[in-house]
Design a protein around this nucleic acid. Structure first.
Lengths: 236, 236
DNA sequence: TCTTGACATATTGTCATACAATAATTATGT
DNA sequence: ACATAATTATTGTATGACAATATGTCAAGA
């Protein structure tokens, strides 16, 4: 059981928080296409909030890099170039490596147990292709990992990185055979953590991310070749 | 010379951009104390802009972690706990390590030359204690480094990390004897870069950050001991 | 047919204003 | 001195306005 017996009163989320949260979700799930234009008024009607709130929410997403605002043209869903995708995976490797290393050192036995369960669940949803269930389970896995790592800053940055990676996966659909290997790698990582071996955990994590990067980048590159017809052909 | 012969028209920065930029500066320079309350209307008058713009700027800073917004109370300058400071330096180590590794691999000879000059200048301003000059020179150094590394995502995150570290240094003033060692370590790093040795550069960088962390954290801990009188004494 | 310019429309960026909800402060009664 | 009520300050959100900029249309001219 996750301990949930705190008495803390949680303030109901503000309109703006809900707005930015839902937009974030929508982008992660690929419900907006990269490069798609976003018109403020339309979002207002769509979500039933004022332009004030929408704009503030968009500012958050802009800072997070999920949205790109072109001066006097407004917000667009950020498109991730191959080079940026490479960068994202590089950053993810070092940050996630740090996180698992810390987790292996600091996490309580209970947290390790929780993580283990999360991996089991992850394996289940990995097979059944359902974007929403997949994302929420993965979020739970990382929640536990980042909590146990106890590095708030890295956690925040990783959450951002994961959303961007989700977006990538959502648009360039991921391959089922990759899923198999992926779970295997995660189990390896889990093993190192259970053995309280930070270095091994780190190595397993970095390898895992690198593999994920390889397949994702390969697909992206193949995709880009097709999608972007050489400029020359358009000029005559 | 930095090539500057592009014909690109740069749009003049918007009101909001200027607002957030100036606030960011002010926080980095320590002109707001951590924990200090920030009242929106006052900022409006202070900067001569509307509340709309101020709030959007504050949203950016909040997402960057420089400002913490308490529901229904409004924005405060974030206070950095010792634990958060540790986290910041851990993250800085891995991200900066990544950056210098990439720089050693990818940077052009010209960029290495530029970086070398930047280090020279850094040495000059290190001696003369002037917050503003120091920060701008350091910013230039990192600008070159991050440009040459060619990882946009890491660059963005590091810029954020550096601002927070600056804030730390600005409040808990840094020691002059540390400055000496610091420059030495940076020269070592530079040497490894010139030798195009990514691993050595990485090692030098990580060591440098760890040393900086050690002194900063030591001061922070000492400071915290004094500043926070045990709660017991206030209750009788 | 292609360019140019004029005009019409849509959208953004910014401001001003309003007001309920909440928090902080002060005054008041016991 | 302490609890309670009244007052004030500030936030969170919505609305309306409008100049500046970008986009789209269309007719005139080369």
């Amino acid at each position: 059981m996750t301990s949930d017996m705190s008495l803390k009163i949680v303030a109901s989320p503000s309109v703006r928080e809900m707005t930015s949260a839902r937009l974030r979700e929508a982008i992660a799930e690929g419900r907006f296409m990269p490069g798609e234009r976003v018109v403020e008024r339309q979002l207002c009607e769509l979500m039933g909030v004022s332009r004030t709130s929408v704009r503030e929410a968009l500012r958050e997403l802009e800072t997070e890099g999920l949205v790109t605002v072109v001066p006097n043209k407004g917000p667009f869903i950020s498109v991730i170039s191959v080079q940026q995708a490479e960068s994202i995976y590089q950053v993810r490797a070092v940050l996630e490596g740090l996180a698992v290393r810390l987790f292996a050192q600091r996490a309580t036995d209970g947290q390790i147990e929780e993580l283990s369960h999360a991996v089991d669940e992850l394996e289940k949803v990995y097979a059944a292709f359902e974007v929403k269930a997949f994302l929420s389970t993965k979020a739970r896995f990382y929640q536990i990992l980042l909590d146990g790592a106890g590095n708030e800053i890295a956690g925040q940055m990783l959450r951002n990185i994961h959303i961007r990676a989700s977006q990538l996966r959502a648009t360039s659909l991921s391959t089922p055979q990759r899923a198999q290997k992926s779970i295997g790698e995660i189990r390896l990582l889990l093993q190192a953590i259970k053995a309280r071996d930070p270095d091994a955990a780190w190595a397993a994590c970095v390898k895992h991310v690198e593999h994920a990067a390889d397949t994702a980048l390969a697909m992206l590159r193949a995709q880009e070749k097709q999608e972007t017809p050489p400029l020359r052909t358009m000029l005559g």
